[in-house]
């Protein structure tokens, strides 16, 4: 599986990996209630069982089985000092939240 990574995101990840002990992960944060919203972020934490690993330019990025379902070659990781890491787009599920053209 491949994802897209901007140069600024790659540089920042390399800097953080060198300075820290934990590994980067694409993580899905889920909010529920009426409908379900999934947002993605980059976190640095411990490995989880059943993690998948994406290797890009020597950097290993982990993601768990749940998050992997939502990530594909269209996913992009970007970084800016103002917003931090931005992963793809927020993904919204359920009839309450789907936008209809």
């Amino acid at each position: 599986m491949m994802i897209k990574m901007t140069e600024s995101a790659m540089n920042k990840l390399k800097e953080m990996v060198v300075n820290g002990e934990q590994t980067p992960r694409i993580d899905a944060e889920i909010a529920g209630g009426c409908g379900m919203t999934v947002k993605f972020s980059i976190v640095f934490d411990e490995p989880r069982r059943n993690d998948s690993i994406i290797e890009m330019d020597g950097i290993q990025i982990r993601l768990d089985r749940f998050t992997k379902r939502f990530i594909d070659e269209g996913t992009q990781i970007d970084y800016s000092d103002e917003h931090g890491f931005l992963v793809g787009e927020s993904f919204v599920s359920s009839a309450c939240a789907i936008e209809i053209d």
């Binding site: 899905a28 889920i30 411990e46 989880r48 069982r49 059943n50 768990d64 089985r65 749940f66």
Partner: peptide
């Protein structure tokens, strides 16, 4: 979650 399984 720490074992790789989510509530969903």
């Amino acid at each position: 979650k720490s074992l790789g399984v989510r509530t969903l």
